[in-house]
Computed example of a mutant assay.
Amino acid sequence: MAQAQLSHPDPAEELAGWIRLERTPGVGLETARRLLGTFGLPSAVLAAGRAQLKAVVSERIAAELSSAPAPELLSLIDKSLDWAQQPGNCILTLADPAYPKALLDIPDPPLLLYVKGRVDLLHAPAIAVVGSRNATAQGISNAGKFSEALSQAGLTVVSGLALGIDTAAHQGGLRGIGSSVAVIGTGADIVYPARNHGLAHMLAADGCIVSEYPLGMQALPPNFPRRNRIISGLSRGVLVIEAAAQSGSLITARMAGDQGRDVFAIPGSIHSPLSKGCHLLIKQGAKLVESAQDILDELGTYSSPASFASVSAANEATDPLMAALGYDPVDFDTLAERSDLDPAALNARLLTLELDGKIEMLPGGIYRRLN
């Protein structure tokens, strides 16, 4: 007697069901979780009758789920399935074994993750590095150096592909063995900001780009604070480098705390608006860090390949003007007084240091060291 063949669900049909459920008007994360908890997989939700659905959701949503999907939704499903077949692309569902376990621990994990690049990085030990889009040269330098050191120690650097600190963090992460993950606030087929097109290409090749938003989703303002929970959720801790008192980076830090992740902050000058956010976090219990090793020591099991503190001390010991600069912004007259140099000689030295990338001149003739 022939043995009956067991039927296995078609993966494409299953994925189509997830996309349809997630994109049905009125179905958000909370409603989707309630439906999945009641019926099981999306295929079972979509197979349920309107009366069954009305016991769980509103009549309007029940009608949407039990009716044929709109042509626009069918087109999006086809587009998404085609995209997922391209080399380096995949769409992970909440039920997929490859879905990052770290996100399953947060209160509101995305139903779908559109992934471009190395999926394995979503399972690696990670550190988020975030900060201002309008960062200073010192902040960008710190982001690049800290991220490279953390990546060389084996941590994947997670950030948001924005200009400023995020960009430097990704670049630093890509220079180390831990690489880097960008969590974006648009569809995975869109690069925003366009200026980071080259960086996005490098991340897709050697790192990872991930989004919870459907293909074609443009850069809408509400998307970015929302994606921050994924940045922190993927990470063991969040490092904030330069943030104003009202900053999206503080949202990420708050979410990290709510998710049980560590929060780290680099202090700065009391005169800099971009230090206010970091100082606020430190007052609220974030761990003050001065080197990558501080973070590695806190997380445990990792060792840093280099110490920034020793480099800084060496610079100061070999250059008296760097010592005169100190670590707060300082004006020309004060520098002349501290260094005992005449104005012409001081101007020449400052120009040399600026060209060497060791200092920057701020508006109003104020100078600040960069290392």
Rank of each mutant, 00 (worst) to 15 (best):
A2R: 14
Q3C: 07
Q5H: 14
Q5A: 13
E14A: 13
A16L: 13
A16S: 15
R20I: 03
G26R: 12
G28K: 13
T31P: 15
L36C: 14
G40V: 13
A48H: 13
L53R: 03
K54L: 02
A63G: 07
E64S: 10
S67I: 00
A68W: 09
L76P: 07
I77M: 08
K79P: 01
S80N: 06
L81S: 10
Q86P: 06
P87H: 08
T93E: 08
D96C: 10
K101Y: 04
L104F: 02
I106W: 09
L112P: 01
D120H: 03
D120L: 02
L122G: 08
H123S: 15
A126V: 00
V129F: 02
G131R: 03
T136V: 01
I140L: 00
A143R: 01
F146C: 01
F146R: 01
A153E: 01
V157M: 00
A162H: 04
G164P: 07
A169Y: 00
G173L: 03
G173H: 10
R175H: 05
I177M: 09
A182R: 01
A182F: 05
I184F: 04
T186M: 02
T186I: 05
G187Y: 03
A194W: 05
H201D: 11
L203G: 11
I209P: 07
I209V: 13
E212P: 00
Y213P: 06
Y213G: 02
F224A: 06
I230M: 13
I230W: 06
S235Y: 05
V238L: 03
V238Q: 02
A245H: 01
G248D: 09
S249V: 03
L250Y: 10
I251F: 08
G260T: 05
F264C: 09
A265T: 05
I266S: 03
I266M: 08
G268I: 04
S275E: 03
G277D: 03
H279C: 06
L280Q: 14
L288V: 09
V289W: 14
V289F: 02
V289E: 08
A292P: 00
D294K: 09
D294W: 05
E298R: 15
A309S: 05
A309R: 14
V311F: 06
A314R: 11
L325F: 07
S339P: 15
D340G: 08
L341M: 15
L341G: 08
D342H: 15
P343A: 14
L346F: 12
L351A: 15
M361R: 15
G365F: 10
Y367N: 04
